[in-house]
Amino acid sequence: MTTTASTLDRPATPPAFQAVGGARKFKNILATVLVTLAFLIALVPLVWLLVTVIARGFEAVITADWWTHSLKGVLPKEFAGGAYHAIIGTLLQTVVCAVIAVPVGILAAIYLVEYGRGRLARTTTFMVDILSGVPSIVAALFIYALLLSTFQMGQSAFAVSMALVLLMLPVVVRSTEEMLRLVPQELREASYALGVPKWKTIVRIVLPTALSGVVTGVMLAMARVMGETAPVLVLVGYSKSINFNIFDGNMTSLPLLIYSELNNPNPAGQLRVWGAALTLIILIMLFNLVAALVSRFSAIKTK
């Protein structure tokens, strides 16, 4: 039996690792193109919206009056006045809403994660799920029926805040719940093993560990309810002047300003619409920025 050099050079078995096949290469390129395309398509409306709002509202928000004056005594066709009253309104309504929704939401989440067992916990989770699916107009009508019709309260910013609470509560409960569930069980056990009672473990160990995520969730929930329009249309009246009283009188917020100025056919009205829209975006952006900073500041350090 003779063996030539060429048969000796050839390996007895094919090599274990081979080049990437043509079909796999093709699929890889196809998938890469598809996901990149989808990303770009998703990006288009976002950029478009931002560019439009900035381009049309820019002129309004760069004036100092915009941030310091209301529209009191300003004629519809006059290029004057500002959105101070609406900014105050939006902030007041959001803060009052947060003061109620955040403690209730965080405590409910603590109940669900740390204590909740059995039927009550399941019911709570179910209700939170339902609440998170309630359209804002329904929340507004419910508050209308409850506070305005049943309890004979007048239209007020407080009623708006209550409707916003209904919308904010499930978001806060959900995000806090998720953050608390991320805290390892081992940390709770370590604390119990030191003879620390459960409530103190939650307050001093679990909450601080989850703090950064909880704060982020709250800030995002606030940014989310800021732009809600249905409650302000149903539950409070429009006013051109500043009102700090949440229980009495009309109070304009940014969405309400936009809505009312839409009926103003003058160029000045158009400018106010876009200016208010841009202001709303700026406010929400600031909230997100604060959320990011707070989250970074309270994040767990390992160095």
């Binding site: 081992e186 119990y192 560990t209």
Partner: peptide, 20 residues
Amino acid sequence: PVEVRRTIGMVFQRPNPFPT
């Protein structure tokens, strides 16, 4: 039980210092 755990301490399988 809180008093019991104060008297009988425990060290766990995985080190679990409080991260905060």
